[in-house]
């Protein structure tokens, strides 16, 4: 893979550190939504409590927020990987300025007229306002250490990264895009599973994405699936577990059923480390557990071995 293919500063082998949002070069924001800053702020709101300091759930130490954020949202003390938004993920994973979002106008709809405690369209509107994103996914083309890739990042900050028709469609189109352009496909998963508010249509996205991956597979494409905390339900049971190579971030919860459901069903305590990335490695379900700081290197290396 020629480094000249990149349009970015890919000579830098170290993963790019996220810059404090106030200092981001405005030019680098043009490809991403202008609402990105809003998205990042709200991402912090949902995944990390506000404040200058925060307590690490991994080691219980008080951390200086800026130091944690500058460390790829990883605890400098114990290595606990904090959850991050799709926007932050893209910033960490891709070469600077290289992410070009695919410009589909996929708008969520409410095919079931679904109402639980509040109507589904109201929930969607509230999530859109909160995150500044139209849906629980960002997809596009990017460069990782100079290698061109088709990239999808699920967004945990939007309805728990759940997969409805729009997410399923965006994943499928990204797979088709990767097939047509002969690009390696990277999907970063973090999701509560299929979205209940679209009923069986959400369920069908599992078959749709899996079938698209079968065709990508037939075409000889390379699919690297990155599982992050948490990846559960219908997302795990479709594209997320279908990677040619499956990577997982340390400590990530990965499973089909959620721990609570399993506990209720079998009425016994779950073993230590159950459904965590390290245990999935032990039982042979993932290829590698990769710390966030190593992801760019690892992905580039696998592309060099297996990509076209």
């Amino acid at each position: 893979m020629a480094d000249s293919e990149t349009n970015t500063a890919s000579g830098d082998d170290a993963p790019k550190r996220p810059e404090p949002s106030g200092n981001v070069d405005p030019a680098s924001m043009t490809q991403i939504s202008a609402k990105e800053t809003l998205d990042v702020r709200s991402a912090k709101k949902t995944s990390i409590p506000e404040g200058l300091w925060l307590r690490c759930p991994g080691c219980d130490k008080m951390l200086f927020r800026k130091a944690m954020e500058a460390n790829l949202h990883v605890c400098p003390e114990c290595g606990h990987h904090f959850r991050i938004s799709a926007t932050e993920r893209i910033r960490q994973l891709c070469d600077v300025k290289s992410f070009e979002p695919r410009r589909w106008k996929l708008e969520g709809a409410d095919p079931l007229n679904f109402i639980d405690l509040k109507p589904y369209p109201d929930r969607l509107a509230k999530e859109q306002e909160k995150t500044g994103q139209p849906e629980a996914i960002q997809a596009g083309r990017a460069f990782i250490k100079g290698r061109p890739v088709a990239l999808c990042c699920l967004d945990l900050t939007f309805m728990m990264g759940s997969m409805g028709s729009v997410v399923g469609e965006a994943i499928t189109r990204s797979i088709e895009f990767a097939t047509d352009r002969e690009l390696p496909l990277i999907i970063v998963s973090c999701s509560g599973g299929a979205r209940m508010q679209e009923g069986a249509l959400s369920l069908m996205q599992m078959a749709k994405t899996s079938a698209a991956l079968a065709r990508f597979d037939d075409a000889g494409g390379l699919f690297i699936s990155l599982l992050t905390d948490p990846t559960t339900g219908g997302v795990t049971a479709s594209f997320a577990m279908l990677g040619d190579v499956i990577l997982a971030e340390p400590g990530a919860l990965i499973g089909f059923a959620g721990p609570r459901v399993i506990k209720q069903t079998i009425r016994q305590d779950l073993p230590e480390g159950f459904q965590r990335a390290e245990q999935l490695l032990d039982v042979g379900m993932v290829d590698r557990v990769v710390p966030r700081s190593e992801l760019r290197n690892e992905i580039a290396r696998i592309i060099d071995y297996a990509g076209k």
């Binding site: 049971a237 577990m241 279908l242 059923a257 399993i262 069903t265 079998i266």
Partner: peptide, 17 residues
């Protein structure tokens, strides 16, 4: 699909996918 320890460890999600 069955939600249990063995099912998860033997790859319930992978088997379905």
């Amino acid at each position: 699909a069955f939600p249990g320890i063995g099912a998860e460890q033997r790859g319930q999600a992978e088997a379905i996918a």
